[in-house]
């Protein structure tokens, strides 16, 4: 499975989740691109042996920042962009292995997968927090630029 294939699949998955959540159709394409770009960042980190947790962290920071920019550009709430694009980062595979091993009574493996799920979910939450920080910084800088421009004109 090549990188290009993975990126196309990421776009398709985000588009699909957007359809399920009924996001406005004007937002579908942009949400898909955010999902594709952040999945690309995740793949880059995987290629550099960064691990799933760091990949998810960087991915969710990217989703948070890009969604906020997209929200400002499209004048729509940010959740319209960040919930669908997050779908590829959901630890579905690990969560399933967790349930499966608990059901089969293999508790050592089950606990291992539980920890993985907790770490990935925590990384995504932390990523959102960092993204919020960056968003405030971007908004502040943007305001300063606007103010400077206004002063220049006066």
């Amino acid at each position: 499975m090549g990188v290009l294939g993975q990126l196309i699949l990421a776009y398709a998955a985000v588009l699909g989740f957007g359809l399920i959540l009924n996001i406005p159709h004007q937002a579908l394409n942009l949400a898909g691109w955010i999902g594709t770009l952040t999945w690309g960042a995740y793949l880059l980190i995987q290629a550099a042996d960064g691990g799933v947790v760091l990949g998810s962290l960087v991915g969710s920071v990217g989703i948070g920042v890009l969604s906020s920019l997209a929200a400002r550009y499209k004048k729509m709430p940010a959740i319209i962009f960040n919930i669908p694009s997050l779908v590829s980062f959901v630890p579905g595979s690990q969560a399933y292995q967790m349930v499966r091993n608990f059901a089969l009574g293999q508790y050592r493996l089950a606990v291992e997968f539980t920890l993985q799920v907790i770490m990935i979910t925590g990384a995504i939450a932390l990523g959102f927090l960092l993204a919020e920080l960056l968003n405030r910084l971007i908004a502040f800088c943007w305001q300063q630029v606007l103010l400077a421009r206004q002063n220049h004109q006066d």
């Binding site: 499975m1 398709a12 998955a13 699909g16 989740f17 359809l19 399920i20 779908v87 590829s88």
Partner: peptide, 20 residues
């Protein structure tokens, strides 16, 4: 039907992405 297309788009591609 469009939501079902969405479900199909989510399940297939994510399976390939997760499991290679």
């Amino acid at each position: 039907w469009l939501q079902l297309v969405g479900a199909a788009l989510v399940s297939g591609p994510l399976m390939i992405m997760f499991r290679d």
